[in-house]
Design a protein around this nucleic acid. Structure first.
Lengths: 344, 344
DNA sequence: TATATTTACGAAAACGTTGTAGTTAAATTT
DNA sequence: AAATTTAACTACAACGTTTTCGTAAATATA
C-alpha cells in the first residue's frame, strides 16, 4: 500500500494519481449518478489499492453530522445497561453510526455535565436513562433546544416531549408482590432506589396495589428508601432485618439492593427463602447460580436498547428538529427461582 | 443564551460581538500568552455567556488529532472488560480524551474489520485485547504503520513491539492448580479457551508446573480445548464429567467456562466441592454469592485499564511514532471460597 | 533621538471533505 | 442546421478551528 508521509491517503492524492478532480473522486466513492460507470470503477479500484479511508472529521465538519450517538447511563457495572448498549449497537452498526458511552454514576451533577458537553455537536442524538437523583430537566431541555434529540429508556422523564421506551413497571411490581404473597409472604418490604424516579414509583404502586388486593395492611415502615451509597444501603437493610419482627419477603426495586440483601442475610444467618423470600428487578446472568438462585423480574434490555436506537434513528433520518411524544412499553418477565420458593 | 439558527455559537460570531478577530478569540480561549489579560477575560466571559462550545471536529481536522482512543475488547458482557474500560476512562477523563468501545465478539474477522476501520484516523491510539482466534497480526501492524499506536492488555501479542500490560499468569496458573492439589485434588482438568492466546498458554504452563511439582502425572485428555461456542463448550464439559472416572478438580482459564461447569454440575447433580472442586480466573462480582461461592483468581482489571491508558497517553503526549517494547506485569489475587473448600 | 525589542493583536492558509454551480462535449430534438 | 438536453466532469466555497506569519504600537535600549 502506497502512503503519504503521515500515513493516510486522501481525496487530493487519489485525484492526482487518477488524473481527475477531487470532486470526481469524492462523487465516485459516494456512487453519485453524476459520474460515469467507467470512472467510478477506476476510482474505487484505486481507492482500494491505495488503502484510502475517508476522514470522518472532515465530513462531520462539512455536514454538521457526526454519525455518532451518545448513550448516557447511570452505571456500567450492570448487565441491564450493558444489554441496552448491545441492543443499541446492533441497530447503530446497521446505520453506520458510532456510539459514545457516557456514565453519570447515577449522579445528577455528572449527568448535567455530560449533557452540557454534548452541546458541542459531537453527537447527533442521545439515548439516556436518568440518574436517580435528577429532579430538574433544564440540562436535557437545553440539549434538545440546540437540536440534539434525546430518547429516554427505562428511567424516563415524563415532563419532556420525546420518545420513551419503558417496561410495564406497574404490572411487574404488582406481579412481583403477588408472587411473594402467593408464596406465603404477609409482611413484605419494598426496597426503593429513588423517590423521584418514575420507574421506582410505578413499581411501588404495583406493590401497593397487590397488598391492597390481598387485604394486606400497608406498613409505611416497610418501604426502605435506599440510594447510591452502598454502605448506607447495607446499614438500612441490616436495620430492617435486625428487628424483632422482620419482614418475610423483600421486593427490591433494583438488583444491587437484592444483592445487598443477600449479603446481609448471609452475615445475619437469615435463611433465604425459609425465613425471608427475595425478588427483584434484575438482568444478572448468574441469577440462577446464586445461593439460593434469585427470583427476578427481568426486563428485555437488549430489545429496549434496539427500540431506543431505532426510534432515535427514525427521527434523525427525517432530520426532524423534535421527536414527538411516544411511549413504547415492553414487557418484563418473572423468573421464579429458589429465593422465593418454599423448599420441600 | 443567545444562539444562532442551528443552535451553536462559533468563534466567528463571538469575534463579531466582541469586535476582535477570530484569532484573538481562539487564542484567548486557549489561554495563549499572545493575548492580553483584559481581552482574554472579556472573551472568556462572553463565551460563557453565549454558551459557546468548541466544535471538536473542526479542531480534529485541523490538528490531525481526535482526542479519542479506541478500546477494542473481545466481549462486553464480562466484568473484567468492563473494569478495564472504567480504568481507562478514569485516566482518559483527566487527559480530556474520549473513549470509543469496539467489541470483536472474540472473532478475528471482526477484530480485523474494526482495526481496518480505525485507519481513518477516528482515534489517536488503541488499547486492545486479542480475540481468541487471532493468529496473524497484519491488521495490527498495518494500523501501527499509519501511526496509530496500539497498547495491548491481557490477551497480548508478543510479536509486536509495543507496550503490553499483563498479569502474572504463569504464577497464577501454578497457584490455582497448587491450591486445588492442596485441597486434595489429584485429577485436575484444565479448561482452555484458546490454543493461541498467550495468557491461556501461560496459565496452562503454570498448571503443568504445579502438577509436576507434586508428582501428579499429566494426562493430556484432561486438557479440554473450548472455544467461543457456548453450546460446544457445554457439550465438551458434559462429556468430561460424564466419564466413569471423572476429574476431581477443574481449573477454568476463563470465567465463562467455570459458569458452564457449574451448569453442567447442576444438571448432572454433581456436588461442588464434594465431588469436584472448581477454580477459575474471574472478575465476577457475585462470585461470593454463587452456589457454592466460587474460588477465583481475580485480575486487577481496573488497574490494568488505568495502566494501559497511562502508557498510551504517555506516548501520545510525546507524539512518538512507535511505542517501545515494555512489559508491565500486575499481580492477580486468589480468593478462596466454597467451590474449592472441603465442607465440614 | 534612533533603534531594537516586546506586547497585543489580525489576516489568512490549512485540515479533508461535500455539494452547488458551472463547463464542456456529445447526444438528442426541433 | 440550430437549438436544446443530457452526460460527465471540474472549480471552488464552505464547515469551524488552529497556527504561522505579519504588523502596529508601546516600551526599552543604545
Amino acid at each position: 500500500m502506497l502512503k503519504r508521509m503521515n500515513g493516510t491517503t486522501n481525496l487530493k492524492e487519489l485525484a492526482k494519481i487518477l488524473g481527475v478532480s477531487i470532486s470526481t473522486v469524492s462523487k465516485s466513492l459516494r456512487d453519485s449518478y453524476e459520474i460515469g460507470e467507467g470512472t467510478r470503477k477506476r476510482v474505487k479500484e484505486m481507492a482500494e489499492k491505495m488503502g484510502y479511508n475517508r476522514n470522518p472529521y472532515a465530513g462531520h465538519l462539512r455536514n454538521h453530522k457526526s454519525n455518532t450517538i451518545a448513550v448516557v447511563i447511570p452505571e456500567i457495572t450492570n448487565n441491564f445497561f450493558i444489554q441496552i448498549i448491545k441492543g443499541a449497537e446492533t441497530i447503530s452498526q446497521q446505520k453506520d453510526y458510532h456510539i459514545l458511552i457516557y456514565v453519570s454514576n447515577d449522579n445528577y451533577e455528572q449527568e448535567a455535565s455530560i449533557l452540557k458537553h454534548l452541546h458541542n455537536g459531537r453527537v447527533d442524538g442521545v439515548i439516556m436513562s436518568l440518574a436517580s437523583n435528577t429532579k430538574t430537566y433544564d440540562h436535557i431541555n437545553d440539549l434538545i433546544q440546540v437540536n440534539i434529540p434525546v430518547v429516554f429508556f427505562d428511567r424516563i422523564c415524563h415532563e419532556i416531549e420525546t420518545a420513551k421506551i419503558t417496561t410495564n413497571d406497574f404490572v411487574s411490581g404488582f406481579n412481583a408482590t403477588e408472587h411473594l404473597i402467593q408464596q406465603g409472604c404477609r409482611d413484605i418490604a419494598y426496597l426503593s432506589i429513588s423517590q423521584v424516579l418514575s420507574i421506582d414509583n410505578k413499581r411501588k404502586q404495583g406493590y401497593l396495589e397487590a397488598l391492597s388486593k390481598y387485604d394486606i395492611p400497608f406498613n409505611p415502615k416497610r418501604i426502605i428508601y435506599c440510594g447510591n451509597n452502598a454502605a448506607d444501603n447495607l446499614k438500612k437493610i441490616k436495620a430492617l432485618l435486625k428487628q424483632k419482627v422482620k419482614p418475610d419477603g423483600i421486593f427490591a426495586a433494583v438488583e444491587k439492593l437484592a444483592i445487598s440483601s443477600y449479603e446481609v442475610c448471609n452475615s445475619l444467618r437469615i435463611k433465604i427463602p425459609d425465613e425471608i423470600k427475595i425478588i427483584c428487578f434484575s438482568n444478572l446472568d448468574t441469577a440462577s447460580l446464586l445461593n439460593p438462585s434469585l427470583t427476578t423480574i427481568t426486563q428485555p434490555a437488549f430489545e429496549i436498547g434496539k427500540q431506543a436506537a431505532t426510534v432515535l434513528f427514525k427521527n434523525l433520518d427525517k432530520n426532524k428538529r423534535f421527536i414527538p411524544n411516544e411511549n413504547i412499553v415492553l414487557k418484563s418477565k418473572l423468573f421464579t427461582r429458589e429465593s422465593t420458593t418454599v423448599r420441600n
